[in-house]
């Protein structure tokens, strides 16, 4: 029960930070940190994909309503919920078992955790910026935006991931 409440707090904290802080910081046109995918990425890996998708839908809807995305946030977040296990396999070579009752995330090495996080954020940011621009007229600018924003998002999200995985899931 304690862990479920922790997930609710994580969701609230990440969304508040995204909506009220990160979205109001104008660093550079190519640098847009987005950490709200953490809500999906840090959910227990053994959860059924359907529940993860419903939480992704809820998170995306909250973002769309708050920031006027009109479906953009849901559309870019939902594939992450479906492909989370595949991303974990690509990053760590581990297959997620449905019967796994202990948190897989807390058993990963820091390097594996970082790879999983960066890969997932890269996929999300690529989908998000492609949908947002709907144009390949400036491919270099698009690629640079995706890469630099992924890098910045990973840097911003990393302390949150470390604290959550270490202090909450590691108990």
């Amino acid at each position: 029960m304690y862990k479920y409440i922790s997930y609710v707090w994580l969701m609230v904290a990440v969304l508040v930070a995204q909506i009220f802080l990160l979205d109001n910081i104008s660093i550079h046109l190519w640098l847009r940190p987005m950490i709200f995918p953490l809500v999906i990425l840090l959910l227990p890996m053994e959860w059924r994909a359907l529940w993860v998708m419903l939480i992704a839908l809820l998170t995306g809807l909250l973002m769309d309503i708050s920031l006027g995305g009109a479906g953009l946030y849901v559309a870019s977040l939902l594939p992450l919920a479906l492909l989370r296990s595949t991303l974990m396999y690509l990053a760590t070579n581990r297959v997620v078992e449905a019967s796994d009752q202990t948190s897989l995330l807390s058993r990963l090495s820091l390097r594996q955790l970082m790879t999983y996080l960066a890969l997932a954020l890269l996929l999300h940011h690529a989908l998000f910026f492609l949908l947002e621009t709907l144009s390949l007229a400036h491919p270099l600018r698009l690629v640079a935006t995706i890469l630099f924003s992924t890098l910045l998002s990973t840097v911003v999200a990393w302390p949150i991931v470390r604290i959550f995985v270490g202090k909450v899931l590691g108990r």
Binding site: L50, M53, G60, G71, V74, A75, L78, P79, A81, L131
Partner: peptide, 19 residues
């Protein structure tokens, strides 16, 4: 699960496309 994904993703994309 894939069917539900396609359905929700389709609705989200449609909303975005017509926004």
């Amino acid at each position: 699960v894939v069917l539900i994904f396609v359905l929700i993703e389709g609705v989200a994309l449609w909303c975005y496309a017509t926004s």
